[in-house]
Simulated assay, not measured.
Amino acid sequence: MSDEILYAVENGVGTITLNRPQARNALTFAMYERIAEICRDPAAHGDPRVIVMTGAGDKAFGAGTDISQFRAFSGAGDALAYEERIEKVIGTIERCPVPTLAAISGAVTGGGASIALSCDLRIATVTARFGFPIARTLGNCLSMENYARLFALLGPALVKDIVFTARLVEAEEGRRVGLYSELLPDHAALMARASELAQIVASHAPLTMRATKEAMRRLTAAAADGVDGRDLVTLCYTSADFREGMEAFLGKRPPNWTGR
Rank of each mutant, 00 (worst) to 15 (best):
E4F: 07
I5H: 08
Y7L: 07
E10Y: 09
N11T: 12
V13D: 07
G14K: 09
G14L: 08
G14D: 08
T15F: 10
N19Y: 13
A23Q: 15
A23H: 15
T28I: 02
T28M: 12
E37F: 10
R40S: 10
P42K: 01
A44L: 14
G46Y: 01
D47R: 10
V50Q: 07
V52F: 07
M53G: 05
G55N: 05
A56M: 04
G57W: 09
D58F: 03
G64M: 08
S68L: 11
S74V: 13
G75N: 10
A76M: 01
A76K: 08
L80W: 00
A81T: 11
A81Y: 09
E84I: 00
E87Q: 13
V89T: 11
V89I: 03
G91V: 01
G91W: 03
I93D: 02
R95Q: 13
R95E: 13
C96F: 02
V98N: 08
V98K: 09
A102F: 02
A103I: 00
A103G: 04
V108Y: 00
T109N: 02
G112K: 03
A113V: 05
A113P: 07
I115V: 14
A116I: 00
L121V: 11
I123T: 11
A124N: 06
V126S: 03
V126I: 06
R129V: 00
R129K: 07
P133A: 09
A135I: 01
A135T: 12
G139K: 03
M144H: 12
M144C: 13
E145Y: 13
A148D: 13
L150S: 05
L150W: 04
L154M: 04
G155D: 09
P156R: 09
P156W: 03
A157T: 10
V159M: 07
V159Q: 11
D161E: 15
F164N: 15
R167W: 01
V169Y: 10
V169G: 12
V169E: 14
E172F: 08
E173L: 07
R175Q: 12
V177W: 06
G178Q: 11
L179R: 02
Y180W: 12
Y180G: 04
Y180C: 10
L183N: 05
P185E: 10
D186A: 07
H187V: 06
H187N: 12
A189R: 11
A192Y: 05
E196K: 12
E196F: 09
A198G: 15
Q199N: 12
I200A: 13
I200S: 12
A205D: 15
A205G: 00
P206D: 05
L207W: 09
A211W: 08
T212V: 08
A222D: 14
A223H: 11
A224R: 14
D225Y: 08
G226W: 09
V227S: 14
T234L: 06
L235R: 15
S239P: 07
A240Q: 06
D241K: 01
F242G: 04
R243Q: 11
E244L: 02
E244S: 01
G245K: 08
A248K: 01
A248R: 03
L250A: 08
R253P: 05
R253I: 00
N256Y: 03
W257D: 04
T258A: 10
T258R: 10
R260S: 09
